[in-house]
Nucleic acid binder design. Structure first.
Lengths: 195, 195
DNA sequence: CTTATTTCCTAAACCAGTTCATTTTTATTT
DNA sequence: AAATAAAAATGAACTGGTTTAGGAAATAAG
């Protein structure tokens, strides 16, 4: 299936797969199309797959006791998204994962992945490496939240991920960076800068 | 070496190792003793090992441009610590990792680990699993910082990690939870509670 | 056991970012 | 194209947490 190639190519950046391995792996992948505003993960339901974004944009977020939304992650083309905690422990999710645009995904089911990790040990290495990188990323983000002001975090995000910033609603960006939409508005319109 | 058994036992919680594998692995482990206030990682130097705490307590922290300290992680007995980002990318560290007490460590060198990951593929699975769990932990912490007040984060930490709270200085705990020591003092002495 | 250093506490002034309330703009639907 | 809903802007009042500055305890060192 040509449509499933992007995931094979993604994995091939980290480990070398034989043609047989590629074919075997491909048999487990599924293409899914979702419409804007549709959820692929919802609180209370166990997250059954990880999703690679072929086309579109997604947002993973938590709704707190006061009804406020807090964005944990975004994903656009060539990124993965899921409720990671729900997926690895196979526990009910706490996050919503919602399509911000009409999108196309390639999905891997949890059980299938457990199976081919046994069959193709090379994929353990792939999993280890991308998980390590994701962990390093999250540690940096934690430190960034601890050390930087709202405006500094905004500037940092804009310089690193302007492609994402341009595609997601402003309230989603604010809730990712950890402040209110009103404050983001102020930052954007220069009410806080010193010249 | 009997002293190195704790790490073998730790790994054996996640994967089954043969006696040969255990022996081979043991040959790469090194015991290190460090005194209180000693650093095992410093900014500017590439982090060359991950450390398992046999005895003692550690703290990993960043010093920002204003000289303020921000704690990323603690480690007591049966935990691991390092500058993870520096370790996996073999880049200069940004963190200090400092002993809070006289301590004993079992260390694994970066190159040695790369080698035995090739020799014993089972260890890839071990690495994957603990990295996944650490990632899930950091995601939860990130969400906790986004959704909860200082006092709620304090209460949460005390109920989950009172063993750590009792052993680390208060300024270290405050800087982990993301607020000032003065505010921690207020929380502890009930100046903020509603009755 | 005495001195120095590090850690912890207290309180008032302050500020980065929130909340609330309303308006304007931009998308989406009919 | 009009109607409706969703997203962004604006400003004034407010608050959770910081800063500054000091003193009191506790630890470590001579």
């Amino acid at each position: 299936m040509k449509d499933l190639l992007p995931v094979i190519n993604y994995i091939s950046r980290y480990v070398d797969l034989t043609d047989d391995e590629k074919n075997h792996l491909t048999s487990f992948l599924k293409i899914t199309k979702v419409k804007k505003r549709q959820f692929i993960v919802q609180p209370g339901f166990v997250c059954k797959h990880k999703s690679y974004v072929v086309k579109g944009a997604f947002r993973g977020y938590l709704v707190d006791n006061n009804g406020k939304e807090h964005t944990l992650s975004f994903a656009i083309e060539d990124w993965w998204i899921s409720d990671y905690s729900s997926l690895i422990y196979q526990e009910p999710a706490t996050l919503f994962v919602e399509a911000l645009e009409d999108s196309v995904l390639i999905q891997i089911e949890y059980e299938d992945e457990q199976q081919f990790l046994k069959e193709i040990p090379k994929l353990e290495k792939f999993e280890r490496i991308i998980t390590q990188r994701s962990l390093a990323f999250h540690q940096k983000r934690l430190l960034s939240n601890l050390t930087k002001t709202a405006e500094e975090r905004y500037d940092e995000f804009m310089s690193k991920y302007s492609a994402i910033a341009q595609r997601v609603p402003q309230y989603a960006l604010a809730s990712y960076l950890g402040f209110s939409t009103e404050y983001l508005s102020k930052i954007r319109n220069g009410k806080t800068s010193k010249s």
